[in-house]
Nucleic acid binder design. Structure first.
Lengths: 118, 118
DNA sequence: CTGGATCCTCAGGGATACTG
DNA sequence: CAGTATCCCTGAGGATCCAG
């Protein structure tokens, strides 16, 4: 993918840019990563996720979950019961997001210190 | 509320979630990361960036650059000349984004292979 | 409980024209 | 060249109601 410049590797190629754009496209919006993080902590039911994520509406959660399922980032398991039980779980593919989440979290802390926290 | 899987650490705390949200807030939209990646490759003038990033309008570029400057993610240097010359550069703070960009890029490749490329 | 269906709002973003 | 000013539209996302 990339070559080094003395000591720092710099993003450069069109192909790299495309990859970043692809990633952002899948993870876009305010909710997807929050949902995935929540599920990386263990299987959850619909209402559980809704309660955990501050401010999300049922409608958005439903839509985002469908999106994520299409991208193989979550599994949806339906149990035939009443009241209905649906469990969502992360997939092996979700696990590959760990480094992204980790990097964003670290940077979030750095940035907060830099801009807000001083 | 945490279940470990053998060897991986899992995101969990409220504070971590906040950090990720903060990061996403600063980097949101389709353009900011593309602009930053472009500038991490070296100083650029307005039109240069506009030409490099496919599909961005002058208006958006202008707005995003202002945003990024407020977040100390770019420097804006104006030279008194005609025609006007304005150069944008990455900052030290931008450098801290490297791991984020790197992670997103890697994941973009992985995801493409998983979903599209098969 | 799990969502689908509807309706509505608003900000993100495109197009174009214009200024210093 | 480096933007600003307008106008407009689309789509993300909220609120509410309803059904299985």
């Amino acid at each position: 993918m990339k070559q080094k410049k003395s000591n720092e590797s710099i993003e450069c190629s069109k192909s790299d840019l495309m990859a970043v754009k692809d990633a952002l496209e899948v993870l876009n919006g305010r909710w997807k990563l929050q949902i995935l993080i929540s599920l990386l902590n263990g299987k959850k039911r619909f209402k559980q996720i809704a309660r955990e994520i501050d401010g999300i509406s049922d409608r958005m959660l439903s839509k985002e979950l469908k999106d994520l399922e299409e991208n193989k980032l979550i599994n949806r398991q339906v149990y035939d019961a009443f009241p209905p039980i649906v469990e969502y779980t992360a997939t092996e593919h979700t696990e590959t997001l760990h480094s992204v989440i980790y990097a964003l979290r670290e940077w979030g802390y750095i940035h907060r210190k830099k801009i807000i926290g001083k």
